[in-house]
């Protein structure tokens, strides 16, 4: 009992060192938040809200009385005035190569704006897969493809692999999609050894996870053979390769949202925004979803 009390006393001493902080913050005016993920051949949706003070737990206020105008390749194409619930829909369906300029006017505030260029989908060829190991429960496929990177431009890619499953139970037939973990041992893409993977118990020198972010810094203008090792359950897997070609802003936004609060030892990651005069992201991406031919 005495020992327990000693431990409790030690914990109490440590616990006593935390306290709520009363601070006078300068007035922090809520800012206009514009969120839009632009994709080719899809109607363009824009969501407008206000930001809130970080110690508030109220719901975000939507902006219903704004005027949003869209300029495509230098020509004002469409204007949407006021939308309930803060969701503004444009009829225009962007195409790869389009340059889009967005301008949002909210009564009583300065206008906010942003621009993006719709990237072309990634150029892939020779997608194939081979089974390299399997046991009673799991199997591992080597998935290979050739990525043709356009020269003279910066390209940003995200690779994901989806495992689509059909299954039946007493409630009926179901479909379920889940991201599949994979590794990529390609120094040109991973830019070095990642000790974080090592400490996680993964093979060093490889990317391992469910989303692989990389740029064309080391493969600019090249046809580059990419190999992924995908591990999945050994139950009739149906794999799809999702490769997303992003505008720079979209890539940085997605990358920063993945990493902004992960590592207490790292410098805090600022979520990337590109709204001039406000917060949020108006940026494009082109996704290609390709079925991976599997040897069963």
């Amino acid at each position: 009992m005495k020992k327990t009390l000693a431990i409790l006393a030690a914990l109490l001493m440590l616990g006593a060192c935390t306290k709520d902080l009363e601070m006078d913050f300068d007035d922090i005016e809520p800012q206009v938040v514009a969120m839009s993920c632009v994709e080719p051949d899809s109607t363009l949706m824009l969501r407008l809200t206000y930001s809130r003070f970080f110690l508030s737990d109220r719901p975000f206020r939507t902006i219903d009385d704004a005027t949003a105008s869209l300029t495509v390749n230098g020509t004002v194409t469409e204007e949407v005035v006021a939308a309930a619930g803060g969701n503004y829909g444009f009829a225009y369906r962007p195409q790869p190569g389009d340059r889009l300029d967005l301008r949002v006017s909210v009564p009583g505030r300065d206008a906010v704006s942003a621009s993006t260029t719709v990237p072309h989908p990634a150029s892939l060829a020779n997608l194939r897969a081979s089974l390299i190991s399997h046991d009673q429960y799991d199997c591992t496929y080597s998935v290979r493809f050739t990525l043709d990177d356009p020269a003279d431009e910066d390209n940003f890619y995200i690779i994901r692999v989806i495992n689509h499953r059909h299954y039946s139970d007493e409630y009926g037939n179901h479909d379920r999609d889940a991201y599949c973990r994979f590794s990529c041992n390609d120094y040109l893409l991973t830019e070095g050894i990642d000790l974080g993977s090592l400490l996680d118990g993964d093979n060093p020198g490889e990317y391992y996870g469910g989303e692989f972010f990389f740029t064309d810094g080391n493969i600019n203008g090249l046809s580059h053979e990419v190999e992924l090792l995908c591990s999945t359950e050994n139950e009739a897997p149906e794999l799809y390769l999702v490769i997303t070609s992003c505008s720079r802003d979209r890539y940085l936004y997605e990358f920063s949202t993945r990493n902004h609060d992960d590592d207490i030892f790292g410098e805090p990651m600022q979520v990337h925004c590109n709204i001039d005069g406000g917060i949020g992201i108006f940026a494009a991406r082109s996704r290609s979803v390709l079925p991976i031919p599997l040897q069963q």
Binding site: V33, M35, S51, R52, F53, E254, T257, G280
Partner: peptide, 10 residues
């Protein structure tokens, strides 16, 4: 010091 309603794909 501020929070906003973003989105998260992937």
């Amino acid at each position: 010091l501020q929070q906003f309603e973003g989105d998260r794909a992937g």
